[in-house]
Structure formats: structure tokens, C-alpha cells
Amino acid sequence: MRDGKQDRDEEFGRFMTARWPRLLRTAFLLTGERHSAEDLAQSTLERAYTAWRRVGTADDPDAYVRRVMINLHARRHRRRLKEFLAPKDDSGLVREEADHSDRITRAVDREVLLRALAQLPARQRQAVVLRYWEDLTETQTAQAMGCSVGTVKSNTAKGIAKLRLIPALADAVPQGGRA
């Protein structure tokens, strides 16, 4: 006879397996570095597992887990206020291996895009990643970031404006393309 813990563990295992690629991609876009992204995604799932009774019964478990990831990322970023999100040079960056089923790989120059994204402040980067790569609505993004819709709009607009000012990115995106 099966017990409730075994059922919850199996349910969480299915959830984790199905969500891992997307969580890892989002974490990579937030951190800009593969190992940090793996740490962030693992920490997120660790927190989700310990709260699985709440997560599994939530109206939108994906939104709950996304919120956990954003909170963890924000906490890590606050601890390192003196460090910039992007390193002074890119020699320390670990290159992400292209996943041809991932939409971002369709960008003309993936490296330029990732470097440009890494130059944004953390909140702007979070807003841009959640809105354009995760395809969340402004309301969903606000919930994930724990802020108002107006703050999401402001951070997204500022982030996109900064991205448009990067010459290398402008060269990589075709005219009329969405930034």
C-alpha cells in the first residue's frame, strides 16, 4: 500500500522533470552563467519540494515556483551589491550550449543578446526575461516579481530602451524586429 509521502514525492518528481528545462533557461537568463543558473534552479526546486503541499495545491504551481526563483535571485543579488551582474570581461562566462528547440537560439547572434541582457540591472533583467522569454502577462510578471504592474511596465520599458542602445545588439536584430 502506498503512503501519502510517496505519492507527493512522485508528483513532485513529475513536476520537476517537466519544468527543469524551462526553469534552467530562465535561471540562465537571470544569472548569465550556467553554474549559477543550475544552482538557482536547484535551490528553487528544493524550496518548492519543502513546500510541495502548498505548491502542488496552488492554482498555478508554475507561478508559485517562478516567484520562488525570482525571490532567491533577488536575495542573492542583494548580497552582492558591489558586484555587477555582468563581469568586466567575458572570459569568466561559461557559454551556454545551444538547444535548437529553444526560441532564443533563433537570435542571429546569441552571444550578443546574452551579453546585452547581462548589462541590465537585476530588476530590469527580471522584467524583460519574464515578459519576453517566459511570455508572461504584465500581471503575472508583477506577481512573480512581487511588485505592481506599473513597476513591471517601467522596468520593462527601461530595460528594452537600454537594450536598444547597445550597438552590437542593434546590428544583430533585423529592423522592425522585436527587441
Results as ranks from 00 to 15, higher is better:
12 F>G: 08
13 G>V: 00
13 G>E: 01
13 G>M: 00
13 G>W: 00
16 M>Q: 09
16 M>C: 06
16 M>I: 03
16 M>A: 13
17 T>D: 02
17 T>V: 07
17 T>H: 06
17 T>G: 00
18 A>C: 03
18 A>T: 06
18 A>P: 02
18 A>W: 07
18 A>Y: 08
19 R>W: 05
19 R>Q: 11
19 R>S: 06
19 R>F: 03
19 R>C: 02
19 R>L: 02
20 W>N: 04
20 W>G: 03
20 W>A: 06
20 W>L: 09
21 P>C: 07
21 P>W: 11
22 R>I: 05
22 R>L: 11
23 L>Q: 11
23 L>V: 06
23 L>P: 06
24 L>C: 08
24 L>H: 10
24 L>S: 10
24 L>V: 09
24 L>D: 06
24 L>R: 09
25 R>G: 11
25 R>D: 12
26 T>M: 14
27 A>F: 04
28 F>C: 03
28 F>I: 03
28 F>T: 03
28 F>H: 07
30 L>D: 07
30 L>K: 04
30 L>G: 09
30 L>A: 10
30 L>Y: 08
31 T>L: 07
31 T>A: 13
31 T>R: 11
31 T>P: 09
31 T>K: 11
31 T>E: 13
32 G>E: 05
32 G>P: 05
32 G>M: 09
33 E>K: 02
33 E>I: 01
33 E>G: 01
34 R>W: 09
34 R>L: 12
34 R>C: 07
35 H>P: 00
35 H>Q: 10
36 S>W: 03
36 S>P: 01
36 S>Y: 04
37 A>C: 03
37 A>E: 01
37 A>I: 00
37 A>P: 02
39 D>L: 03
39 D>H: 05
39 D>E: 10
39 D>M: 04
39 D>F: 03
40 L>P: 04
40 L>V: 03
41 A>P: 00
42 Q>N: 12
42 Q>L: 08
42 Q>K: 09
42 Q>T: 13
43 S>M: 12
43 S>D: 15
44 T>G: 02
44 T>C: 01
44 T>K: 04
44 T>P: 01
44 T>M: 03
45 L>I: 14
45 L>Q: 11
46 E>W: 12
46 E>C: 13
46 E>Q: 15
47 R>N: 14
48 A>P: 01
48 A>V: 01
48 A>I: 00
49 Y>I: 01
49 Y>F: 13
50 T>R: 15
50 T>G: 12
50 T>A: 14
50 T>D: 15
50 T>H: 15
50 T>E: 15
51 A>C: 10
51 A>S: 13
52 W>P: 13
52 W>S: 13
52 W>M: 13
52 W>T: 14
53 R>E: 15
53 R>H: 15
53 R>V: 14
54 R>P: 00
54 R>C: 04
54 R>D: 11
54 R>Y: 11
57 T>Q: 08
58 A>T: 15
58 A>C: 11
58 A>M: 10
59 D>R: 12
59 D>V: 11
59 D>H: 09
60 D>N: 14
60 D>W: 05
60 D>Q: 10
61 P>C: 06
62 D>E: 08
62 D>F: 00
62 D>T: 08
62 D>N: 08
